[in-house]
Simulated scan of single mutants.
Amino acid sequence: MSIGNSPEDDRPSVGRSLQQARISAGLTVDEVSSITRVRIPIVHAIEQDDFTRCGGHVYARGHIRTLARAVGLDPVPLLEQYAADHGGRLAPTPAAPLFEAERIRPEPRRPNWTAAMVAAIVAVVGFVGFTLFNGGAQGENTSVAADPSTAKPAKPSKAPGGKAGRGKADPKPAPSDSAIAGVPANKVTVKLTAENGQTWMSAKDHNGKLLEEGVLRQGASKTFTDSKRIDLVLGNAGAVQLFVNGKEIKKLGEDGPVQRLSYTRGDPEVG
């Protein structure tokens, strides 16, 4: 920091902050444009602090807010910095004109009893309908749950010595350590967890349909299932813990590089 300058003078510009956050998230300009629907030339211009392509302060603030959320930044400080550097801050609305219409009314506003009565009737009808529906559902559940109890348990057979023989009980499945360990064999199931940092991710099914894309923040998880194949794009693969069909995939890659992976029902294999 140079002598005589405030810390604000040395902080990066709005465009530079967005560019650094995008690179840290492992995203390209094309991927950010796909996420935000902001055209690629405008993304490039904003990262160079050229806001003339935005079409005005209102659109510029909207683009800054959208891009900041896509790369994991808080948009509020960036909007304040933009207003300080480029202007465009909305002037506060005087309080007096807001209440001008109230002062010129000849008489105070009376409560709308008709609207209140209609709202009360709607609430009563809704409550009665919910009660009837909920009571019917509970009756069905009770009858279904009661069916097994009607069957009488079989008496244990007598052993030759006169004591009742002990039949072998059906073995109970051991609980799984993983939430997706019991995945169906006829599908492919993929679970992502941003374990060591945030990452940008995209998931598509075997038809190429986009299931979800965006920034997966640290600690968050996503699970995807398809009948044939799941295609993944990971912006920061080294930060991701990946389970495919209930088994963990090791060594996805280093922190930073983009990885494109594809898994089917027969995996885990190298994607």
Rank of each mutant, 00 (worst) to 15 (best):
S149I: 14
G136N: 15
V125H: 05
A137N: 14
F127H: 09
K158M: 14
D170W: 00
G129V: 13
G136D: 11
V124E: 01
P156R: 01
A146D: 13
A151G: 03
F133E: 08
A154L: 15
G126P: 02
F130Y: 10
A145V: 05
K158T: 12
K152I: 05
K163F: 07
G126W: 01
S143K: 11
V125C: 13
V128W: 02
A137Y: 06
R166Q: 08
K168N: 04
L132S: 13
A137I: 01
A145F: 08
V125P: 06
V122S: 14
I121N: 07
R166L: 12
P148S: 06
K168S: 02
P160A: 10
P160N: 04
K172C: 00
V144E: 13
P156Y: 03
D170I: 13
I121P: 00
R166P: 01
N141D: 08
D147L: 15
L132M: 15
K158P: 02
K168F: 01
A120W: 06
P148W: 12
A123Y: 11
A145H: 05
K158L: 15
K152D: 07
V122D: 08
G167Y: 00
I121A: 13
A164K: 06
A120E: 08
A145E: 09
K152P: 05
G136W: 10
P171M: 03
G167C: 04
G135V: 02
P160S: 02
L132E: 12
I121Y: 02
S157F: 00
G167T: 03
P153T: 06
P153S: 12
V125L: 13
D147P: 00
P173H: 00
P171L: 01
A146R: 10
N141K: 15
A154T: 11
K168D: 03
K172N: 03
V125I: 12
G165C: 01
R166W: 03
A154Q: 07
A123L: 14
V122M: 13
V124M: 11
K163L: 07
A146F: 10
T150V: 04
P156E: 03
T131H: 08
G165S: 09
A151M: 09
G126N: 06
A123T: 15
A159H: 04
G136H: 11
T142L: 09
I121S: 10
V122K: 12
N141W: 08
V122N: 05
R166H: 07
T131G: 07
G161W: 00
F133M: 10
G162P: 00
P173G: 02
N141Q: 14
E140P: 02
S149M: 09
P156F: 00
R166E: 03
N141I: 03
N134P: 00
A137G: 05
A123E: 11
F130Q: 04
P153N: 04
S143T: 08
G165V: 01
A169Q: 08
L132Q: 04
F133H: 07
A159M: 01
G162C: 00
D170T: 14
F130G: 10
K155T: 12
F130A: 14
A123S: 15
T142F: 04
D170K: 10
K168A: 07
S157N: 01
K158Q: 07
G135M: 06
V125F: 07
G167I: 00
G165N: 05
G139F: 04
P173L: 09
G161E: 05
K158W: 01
